[in-house]
Design a binder for these strands. Structure first.
Lengths: 200, 200
DNA sequence: ATAATTTCTTAATGTACATTATTTTTTCAG
DNA sequence: CTGAAAAAATAATGTACATTAAGAAATTAT
């Protein structure tokens, strides 16, 4: 698999980390030494079902979609990962069991990745990263609890409004088909919904 | 509010903690000193919307339901908390913003609770609790990501089967009305579903 | 025990959304 | 630029589930 040789800045990821913990210069450099960069070309996959997840990803630029395909062959998008977000398959990354997910680039995407081995090493070398991830997962958990509740209780229209609120930058950047998959309706019905919304 | 004076054992919670970190005797005692016990009588509430969440709860015995009420007055159960589980409203606990949830005892329930103040103190006194919570939230996050995907993609029947798998001890312990609320259907439809399932 | 209340069942009718099919529009490879 | 393929729009029909209503069963309170 071809990877770009052009390095990009670690500024964004360091700023992301500094939301929750402070790193001195030495720690910053140690942390960076445990990371790898990669550019994913549009439509390329970094994960397919059956593979064990090796890395967690931080998005510097572009957009990934994380999705699975059910028994009937229908695609379900679990999340879009955009600039300044972390993504991967946390279950497979943790348990080292095969994943059920695809992760595919919707645009040319720059990511910074950390391997499971270096992730474990990170906690040994810089224990305060336990705190960073504790807070990161805690916030993420709060979001997913809410999303889980909303996915079961809101109408398709309200789930669409939530998508627009959560991903304003994606509304005109990803296909309607993918938005439909994210909010759990058919593209045909989303088309009807959008027409209904715009006519108000 | 009346609280029981009968103390119960900390054995269960210490065993829960020891899944991810080891505590020596001194640390165990320090930890326990930061906890409080409470018995919640059947139908009593420990949280109502508008209140800021003061505590996180560990269930020693019994069952709590965590739910919200939507604009139309419909109740949506977000989780059942049973023995050996943690619960609360993590979003409000974290941000100290008012909660949107009710937490109510379905049976007489024994809980061990930690206040936000002692939770913060815990990380200062025994930093490896950052690791404990990092792993706890990470696993919980993996579960909620899956549940969030399933809530949007599975049929009511499959969500019911998932409920049975996740909470085998509750199937004949909580009302069908509450199960219906958890899986996001009306009690009438769950009644039809169960009849359909049992006739196979 | 008995009444009152809540839960559960059943059935008729209604609605949000899926499915299928066709046409139009957009994207993209050559 | 041109044609092929993918995405989007529209419409007819179908289905999973909601709503409403009423009676039966179970729980709870007196």
């Amino acid at each position: 698999m071809k990877e770009s040789k052009t390095p990009f800045s670690y500024e964004l990821i360091l700023k992301n980390i500094s939301r929750f913990i402070d790193l001195n210069l030495e720690e910053q450099n140690l942390y960076i030494s445990l990371l790898r960069q990669r550019v994913i070309r549009k439509k390329d996959f970094i994960l397919k079902p059956g593979e064990v997840v090796k890395d967690e990803y931080f998005i510097v630029k572009g957009c990934l979609k994380v999705y699975s395909i059910d028994d009937k062959g229908v695609e379900h998008i679990s999340m879009f990962a955009i600039k300044d977000w972390w993504t991967g398959d946390i279950a497979s990354f943790l348990t080292q069991q095969p994943s059920n997910y695809f992760i595919q680039a919707l645009e040319e995407t720059e990511v910074i990745k950390i391997s499971r081995k270096n992730y474990d090493l990170l906690f040994k070398k810089i224990p305060k990263f336990e705190r960073f991830y504790r807070i990161l997962y805690q916030k993420s958990l709060a979001n997913y609890i809410l999303r889980s509740d909303q996915n079961i209780s809101l109408s398709a229209e309200d789930r669409y409004f939530n998508f627009v609120k959560k991903y304003p930058s994606l509304v005109n950047r990803v296909s309607q088909k993918d938005i439909a998959s994210y909010i759990g309706v058919t593209p045909e019905f989303l088309s009807v919904l959008r027409k209904r919304i715009s006519s108000i």
